[in-house]
């Protein structure tokens, strides 16, 4: 087990190096002079030279890349051109906002997806199965941004059940501690605020969680159907266990592995989908942070934002691979 984790970590090194190479080249692949592009056409010659100096753009590429990696290893993600702030300190509230959103989206996706998949497999070919799989098919094909807009229209505007924008009531901002607002409001023992924060989470979580939910439902159904045919399930049945126990205790455990892979992969998809969801719901997460940086040509933020998201994605896949091994020791690499 331990040696497996070590091996898996070593395999990460080339991927991490490659990732930094890609984010490093973002600035250098812009056609034309990067400093000129960043500052716009009206920039003076001295301003361009100053920026080139401060970003180290005059050094040879190898030296620049070396400095870039050295800074990264020291936890320095660069300085935002727009806010002039240190990105590594500025970025945390955005990461927390995205984590909170993806967490709730994933809870929604797993809870509904796994249960719909189980019931579909249990009552195979029933009307529930048919409807659930039809919804799953539509869910897989859903453009997240359109779903989000429709939600805003129906549930925020027409029905007024949930707020359409932001993380909290902007007239009454929270005093952040961890920047996970649900957690913060609980620490403050301000439960009315918890409700407000949760209400703000509903629409974006559903929009973001729909595609993973659909994929998880389909995956759960097919792997449950396979497991239910196996010998050990027949044995459990022969012992006289009730249907509920057979499904939720014995079958689900063995059907978890493919489902877990999907959950791991989908978390990455969620991080990507977060950019769209966050833009629509004005959610101050890392996706919107990067997206706004593109509009302002804030290249250091684009580089570091993309690197951080990709890094999180790689870490999640690592955790999933290790969990795999814990759940099913039969797997050998």
């Amino acid at each position: 087990m331990f040696s497996y984790i070590i091996r898996r970590l070593l395999m990460l090194i080339p991927v991490l190096v490659g990732m930094t190479l890609i984010t490093f080249s973002i600035v250098h692949l812009i056609p034309g002079n990067p400093a000129q592009v960043i500052l716009g056409e009206t920039a003076t010659q001295t301003a361009i030279e100053d920026l080139e100096e401060s970003m180290g753009l005059n050094e040879p590429y190898v030296v620049q890349y070396g400095l870039y990696v050295k800074d990264l290893l020291q936890g320095d993600l660069g300085t935002s051109l727009r806010s002039k702030a240190d990105i590594s300190t500025e970025i945390w509230p955005y990461i927390a906002a995205t984590f909170e959103l993806t967490f709730f989206a994933m809870i929604f996706a797993i809870f509904i997806g796994v249960n719909a998949g189980i019931i579909s497999a249990w009552k195979q070919n029933s009307w529930f199965d048919f409807l659930a799989m039809l919804f799953a098919l539509i869910g897989v094909s859903m453009p997240v941004f359109w779903l989000a807009l429709m939600e805003q229209w129906i549930f925020a505007q027409e029905l007024g059940w949930f707020p359409a924008y932001g993380r909290e009531d902007s007239r009454d901002p929270i005093a952040p501690i961890t920047y996970f607002y649900v957690l913060d409001s609980l620490i403050h023992l301000d439960f009315a605020r918890t409700v407000t924060v949760l209400k703000h989470l509903v629409l974006p979580s559903i929009a973001l969680g729909t595609i993973p939910m659909a994929i998880i439902a389909r995956m759960t159904r097919s792997s449950m159907l396979e497991v239910m045919k196996s010998d050990y399930i027949r044995t459990v049945r022969a012992k006289g266990s009730g249907q509920f126990l057979v499904i939720y205790k014995h079958a689900l455990k063995n059907a978890t592995i493919p489902v877990l892979t999907v959950i791991g992969l989908q978390t990455g998809v969620l991080l990507g989908g977060a950019i769209l969801t966050e833009t629509i719901f004005s959610w101050p997460g890392i996706g919107r942070y990067v997206f706004e940086a593109i509009n302002y040509r804030d290249y250091p933020v684009i580089q570091s934002g993309i690197l951080v998201i990709a890094f999180i994605f790689v870490l999640i896949n690592l955790v999933v691979d290790v969990l795999y091994k814990i759940i099913d020791p039969r797997i050998n690499y």
Partner: peptide, 24 residues
């Protein structure tokens, strides 16, 4: 294979955004 690994290490839409940010 390593190049594939690296490209797949990015959430796909994010990589697309990065490429468009470079190309315009």
């Amino acid at each position: 294979s390593r190049i594939f690994d690296i490209l797949l290490a990015f959430p796909s839409i994010l990589l697309a955004i990065a490429i468009v940010a470079i190309l315009g």
